[in-house]
Write a protein that binds this DNA or RNA. Structure first.
Lengths: 114, 114
DNA sequence: CCATTTTGTTTCGGATCCGTATCATTCTCC
DNA sequence: GGAGAATGATACGGATCCGAAACAAAATGG
Protein backbone atom coordinates (compact mmCIF):
# COMPACT_ATOMS: atom_id res chain seq x y z
CA UNK A 1 0.00 0.00 0.00
CA UNK A 2 1.98 2.96 -1.21
CA UNK A 3 1.18 6.48 -0.19
CA UNK A 4 -0.83 8.27 -2.82
CA UNK A 5 1.33 10.25 -5.20
CA UNK A 6 0.68 13.98 -5.45
CA UNK A 7 -0.02 15.43 -8.91
CA UNK A 8 3.47 16.95 -8.94
CA UNK A 9 5.08 13.65 -7.99
CA UNK A 10 2.96 11.86 -10.56
CA UNK A 11 3.99 14.16 -13.37
CA UNK A 12 7.65 13.98 -12.42
CA UNK A 13 7.46 10.19 -12.36
CA UNK A 14 5.76 10.18 -15.76
CA UNK A 15 8.32 12.59 -17.13
CA UNK A 16 11.38 10.75 -15.89
CA UNK A 17 10.24 7.31 -16.99
CA UNK A 18 9.13 8.52 -20.42
CA UNK A 19 12.43 10.29 -20.87
CA UNK A 20 14.29 7.12 -20.00
CA UNK A 21 12.18 5.26 -22.56
CA UNK A 22 13.13 7.77 -25.23
CA UNK A 23 16.79 7.53 -24.30
CA UNK A 24 17.19 3.77 -24.43
CA UNK A 25 17.73 1.95 -27.68
CA UNK A 26 14.61 -0.18 -27.79
CA UNK A 27 11.81 1.14 -29.99
CA UNK A 28 9.08 2.96 -28.11
CA UNK A 29 5.79 1.14 -27.73
CA UNK A 30 2.60 3.03 -28.40
CA UNK A 31 0.12 3.53 -25.58
CA UNK A 32 -2.06 0.82 -27.06
CA UNK A 33 0.80 -1.61 -27.44
CA UNK A 34 1.89 -1.02 -23.87
CA UNK A 35 -1.66 -1.61 -22.70
CA UNK A 36 -1.83 -4.91 -24.56
CA UNK A 37 1.54 -6.04 -23.26
CA UNK A 38 0.78 -5.22 -19.63
CA UNK A 39 -2.67 -6.78 -19.84
CA UNK A 40 -1.21 -10.02 -21.15
CA UNK A 41 1.41 -10.13 -18.43
CA UNK A 42 -0.63 -8.92 -15.45
CA UNK A 43 -4.01 -10.51 -15.97
CA UNK A 44 -4.87 -14.17 -15.91
CA UNK A 45 -4.84 -16.09 -19.20
CA UNK A 46 -6.21 -17.00 -21.59
CA UNK A 47 -5.92 -13.85 -23.71
CA UNK A 48 -7.64 -13.77 -27.07
CA UNK A 49 -7.72 -11.07 -29.71
CA UNK A 50 -11.38 -10.51 -29.10
CA UNK A 51 -10.95 -10.35 -25.34
CA UNK A 52 -8.12 -7.85 -25.58
CA UNK A 53 -10.08 -5.72 -28.03
CA UNK A 54 -13.03 -5.64 -25.64
CA UNK A 55 -10.85 -4.81 -22.65
CA UNK A 56 -9.14 -1.95 -24.46
CA UNK A 57 -12.31 -0.88 -26.26
CA UNK A 58 -10.57 -0.88 -29.63
CA UNK A 59 -11.20 -2.76 -32.86
CA UNK A 60 -9.75 -6.20 -33.50
CA UNK A 61 -7.29 -5.08 -36.17
CA UNK A 62 -5.67 -2.84 -33.58
CA UNK A 63 -4.94 -5.92 -31.49
CA UNK A 64 -3.82 -7.98 -34.45
CA UNK A 65 -1.36 -5.28 -35.48
CA UNK A 66 -0.11 -4.76 -31.93
CA UNK A 67 0.55 -8.49 -31.70
CA UNK A 68 2.29 -8.41 -35.09
CA UNK A 69 4.66 -5.64 -34.09
CA UNK A 70 5.32 -6.86 -30.56
CA UNK A 71 5.69 -10.40 -31.87
CA UNK A 72 8.38 -9.10 -34.22
CA UNK A 73 10.09 -7.65 -31.16
CA UNK A 74 9.75 -11.01 -29.40
CA UNK A 75 7.66 -9.57 -26.57
CA UNK A 76 4.65 -11.85 -27.08
CA UNK A 77 3.80 -14.92 -29.12
CA UNK A 78 0.66 -16.42 -30.60
CA UNK A 79 -0.68 -19.95 -30.51
CA UNK A 80 -3.83 -21.51 -31.89
CA UNK A 81 -6.31 -22.68 -29.33
CA UNK A 82 -6.62 -26.40 -30.11
CA UNK A 83 -9.93 -26.60 -28.26
CA UNK A 84 -11.45 -23.94 -30.51
CA UNK A 85 -9.27 -23.33 -33.50
CA UNK A 86 -10.87 -19.99 -34.24
CA UNK A 87 -9.18 -18.54 -31.18
CA UNK A 88 -5.66 -17.28 -30.95
CA UNK A 89 -4.07 -17.43 -27.53
CA UNK A 90 -1.59 -14.71 -26.75
CA UNK A 91 1.35 -15.98 -24.76
CA UNK A 92 4.16 -14.51 -22.76
CA UNK A 93 7.79 -14.84 -23.76
CA UNK A 94 11.07 -14.78 -21.87
CA UNK A 95 11.97 -11.56 -23.62
CA UNK A 96 8.65 -10.02 -22.65
CA UNK A 97 9.17 -10.97 -19.03
CA UNK A 98 12.60 -9.38 -19.05
CA UNK A 99 11.28 -6.26 -20.77
CA UNK A 100 8.60 -5.72 -18.13
CA UNK A 101 10.96 -6.55 -15.29
CA UNK A 102 13.24 -3.79 -16.49
CA UNK A 103 10.28 -1.44 -16.80
CA UNK A 104 9.04 -2.25 -13.31
CA UNK A 105 12.50 -1.73 -11.88
CA UNK A 106 12.87 1.57 -13.71
CA UNK A 107 9.55 2.89 -12.44
CA UNK A 108 10.26 1.71 -8.91
CA UNK A 109 13.69 3.23 -8.94
CA UNK A 110 12.35 6.52 -10.30
CA UNK A 111 9.60 6.58 -7.69
CA UNK A 112 12.21 6.48 -4.96
CA UNK A 113 13.57 9.90 -5.83
CA UNK A 114 10.30 11.81 -5.74
CA UNK B 1 8.84 11.51 -0.30
CA UNK B 2 6.71 8.61 -1.32
CA UNK B 3 7.61 5.05 -0.50
CA UNK B 4 9.35 3.31 -3.35
CA UNK B 5 6.97 1.38 -5.55
CA UNK B 6 7.58 -2.34 -5.95
CA UNK B 7 7.95 -3.71 -9.49
CA UNK B 8 4.49 -5.22 -9.24
CA UNK B 9 2.97 -1.96 -8.07
CA UNK B 10 4.85 -0.10 -10.78
CA UNK B 11 3.55 -2.34 -13.54
CA UNK B 12 0.00 -2.17 -12.24
CA UNK B 13 0.19 1.61 -12.12
CA UNK B 14 1.58 1.70 -15.66
CA UNK B 15 -1.11 -0.69 -16.84
CA UNK B 16 -4.04 1.13 -15.28
CA UNK B 17 -3.01 4.60 -16.40
CA UNK B 18 -2.22 3.47 -19.94
CA UNK B 19 -5.54 1.69 -20.12
CA UNK B 20 -7.32 4.84 -19.00
CA UNK B 21 -5.45 6.77 -21.69
CA UNK B 22 -6.65 4.32 -24.33
CA UNK B 23 -10.20 4.53 -23.05
CA UNK B 24 -10.63 8.28 -23.06
CA UNK B 25 -11.47 10.19 -26.20
CA UNK B 26 -8.36 12.33 -26.55
CA UNK B 27 -5.79 11.06 -29.05
CA UNK B 28 -2.90 9.19 -27.49
CA UNK B 29 0.41 11.01 -27.36
CA UNK B 30 3.53 9.14 -28.37
CA UNK B 31 6.26 8.58 -25.81
CA UNK B 32 8.28 11.33 -27.43
CA UNK B 33 5.42 13.77 -27.47
CA UNK B 34 4.67 13.08 -23.83
CA UNK B 35 8.32 13.67 -22.99
CA UNK B 36 8.32 17.01 -24.77
CA UNK B 37 5.08 18.08 -23.14
CA UNK B 38 6.17 17.20 -19.62
CA UNK B 39 9.59 18.77 -20.10
CA UNK B 40 8.01 22.03 -21.20
CA UNK B 41 5.64 22.06 -18.25
CA UNK B 42 7.95 20.81 -15.52
CA UNK B 43 11.27 22.42 -16.30
CA UNK B 44 12.12 26.09 -16.23
CA UNK B 45 11.77 28.08 -19.46
CA UNK B 46 12.91 29.06 -21.95
CA UNK B 47 12.43 25.95 -24.10
CA UNK B 48 13.84 25.95 -27.60
CA UNK B 49 13.70 23.30 -30.30
CA UNK B 50 17.41 22.76 -30.03
CA UNK B 51 17.29 22.50 -26.24
CA UNK B 52 14.47 20.00 -26.30
CA UNK B 53 16.20 17.93 -28.98
CA UNK B 54 19.34 17.81 -26.86
CA UNK B 55 17.46 16.89 -23.70
CA UNK B 56 15.59 14.07 -25.42
CA UNK B 57 18.57 13.05 -27.54
CA UNK B 58 16.53 13.12 -30.72
CA UNK B 59 16.87 15.08 -33.95
CA UNK B 60 15.36 18.53 -34.36
CA UNK B 61 12.66 17.46 -36.84
CA UNK B 62 11.29 15.16 -34.16
CA UNK B 63 10.76 18.18 -31.95
CA UNK B 64 9.34 20.30 -34.76
CA UNK B 65 6.82 17.61 -35.60
CA UNK B 66 5.91 17.00 -31.98
CA UNK B 67 5.25 20.73 -31.59
CA UNK B 68 3.21 20.71 -34.80
CA UNK B 69 0.96 17.92 -33.64
CA UNK B 70 0.63 19.06 -30.04
CA UNK B 71 0.13 22.62 -31.23
CA UNK B 72 -2.76 21.38 -33.35
CA UNK B 73 -4.19 19.85 -30.18
CA UNK B 74 -3.68 23.16 -28.37
CA UNK B 75 -1.35 21.67 -25.78
CA UNK B 76 1.61 23.97 -26.51
CA UNK B 77 2.25 27.08 -28.56
CA UNK B 78 5.25 28.64 -30.28
CA UNK B 79 6.56 32.17 -30.25
CA UNK B 80 9.57 33.80 -31.88
CA UNK B 81 12.29 34.93 -29.53
CA UNK B 82 12.50 38.65 -30.26
CA UNK B 83 15.95 38.87 -28.72
CA UNK B 84 17.29 36.24 -31.16
CA UNK B 85 14.82 35.69 -33.92
CA UNK B 86 16.36 32.39 -34.90
CA UNK B 87 15.00 30.86 -31.73
CA UNK B 88 11.51 29.54 -31.20
CA UNK B 89 10.23 29.61 -27.65
CA UNK B 90 7.84 26.84 -26.70
CA UNK B 91 5.11 28.07 -24.42
CA UNK B 92 2.49 26.54 -22.20
CA UNK B 93 -1.22 26.88 -22.85
CA UNK B 94 -4.30 26.76 -20.68
CA UNK B 95 -5.35 23.57 -22.41
CA UNK B 96 -1.95 22.03 -21.78
CA UNK B 97 -2.13 22.89 -18.10
CA UNK B 98 -5.55 21.29 -17.85
CA UNK B 99 -4.39 18.21 -19.75
CA UNK B 100 -1.49 17.63 -17.39
CA UNK B 101 -3.57 18.40 -14.32
CA UNK B 102 -5.94 15.66 -15.38
CA UNK B 103 -3.02 13.33 -16.00
CA UNK B 104 -1.46 14.06 -12.62
CA UNK B 105 -4.77 13.49 -10.90
CA UNK B 106 -5.32 10.24 -12.75
CA UNK B 107 -1.89 8.90 -11.82
CA UNK B 108 -2.25 10.00 -8.22
CA UNK B 109 -5.69 8.47 -7.98
CA UNK B 110 -4.48 5.23 -9.52
CA UNK B 111 -1.49 5.10 -7.18
CA UNK B 112 -3.85 5.12 -4.24
CA UNK B 113 -5.27 1.74 -5.07
CA UNK B 114 -2.02 -0.16 -5.33
C1' DC C 1 30.15 43.90 -45.55
C1' DC C 2 30.06 39.18 -46.41
C1' DA C 3 31.37 34.40 -45.38
C1' DT C 4 30.30 31.35 -41.72
C1' DT C 5 27.64 29.54 -38.07
C1' DT C 6 23.35 28.74 -35.77
C1' DT C 7 18.48 27.74 -35.60
C1' DG C 8 14.32 25.88 -37.04
C1' DT C 9 11.61 24.11 -40.97
C1' DT C 10 10.74 21.42 -45.03
C1' DT C 11 11.37 17.63 -48.18
C1' DC C 12 12.06 12.94 -49.28
C1' DG C 13 11.47 7.93 -49.27
C1' DG C 14 10.13 4.48 -46.25
C1' DA C 15 7.78 2.60 -42.36
C1' DT C 16 3.90 2.33 -39.12
C1' DC C 17 -0.72 2.95 -37.52
C1' DC C 18 -5.62 3.95 -37.89
C1' DG C 19 -10.78 2.50 -38.83
C1' DT C 20 -13.84 0.37 -42.08
C1' DA C 21 -14.84 -3.19 -44.81
C1' DT C 22 -14.02 -7.64 -46.45
C1' DC C 23 -12.22 -12.32 -46.26
C1' DA C 24 -10.98 -17.23 -44.63
C1' DT C 25 -11.50 -20.51 -41.21
C1' DT C 26 -13.90 -22.74 -37.66
C1' DC C 27 -17.65 -23.75 -34.77
C1' DT C 28 -22.72 -24.23 -33.57
C1' DC C 29 -26.95 -26.08 -33.93
C1' DC C 30 -30.95 -27.49 -36.22
C1' DG D 1 -24.58 -31.59 -43.77
C1' DG D 2 -25.61 -26.80 -44.38
C1' DA D 3 -26.85 -22.03 -42.92
C1' DG D 4 -25.48 -18.80 -39.86
C1' DA D 5 -22.49 -16.97 -36.21
C1' DA D 6 -17.99 -16.16 -34.34
C1' DT D 7 -13.06 -15.33 -34.65
C1' DG D 8 -8.96 -13.50 -36.40
C1' DA D 9 -6.44 -11.78 -40.46
C1' DT D 10 -6.10 -8.94 -44.50
C1' DA D 11 -6.94 -5.05 -48.01
C1' DC D 12 -7.47 -0.40 -48.49
C1' DG D 13 -7.00 4.65 -48.37
C1' DG D 14 -5.53 8.10 -45.37
C1' DA D 15 -2.86 9.95 -41.71
C1' DT D 16 1.35 10.16 -38.98
C1' DC D 17 6.08 9.45 -37.83
C1' DC D 18 10.93 8.47 -38.67
C1' DG D 19 16.02 9.97 -39.92
C1' DA D 20 18.89 12.19 -43.25
C1' DA D 21 19.52 15.80 -46.15
C1' DA D 22 18.52 20.17 -48.06
C1' DC D 23 16.71 24.63 -47.11
C1' DA D 24 15.54 29.57 -45.31
C1' DA D 25 16.22 33.05 -42.01
C1' DA D 26 18.92 35.31 -38.68
C1' DA D 27 23.04 36.27 -36.06
C1' DT D 28 28.13 36.44 -35.67
C1' DG D 29 32.63 38.07 -36.32
C1' DG D 30 36.61 39.04 -39.05
Amino acid sequence: MAHRLSPAQSMKLWHDVHLAQVHDDEPDLSVRQMSVLLTVYLEAPPHTVRGLAAKLQVTKPVITRALDSMGKLGLVSRRRDEADRRNVLVQRTVKGVLYLERLGDLIGQTSEGL
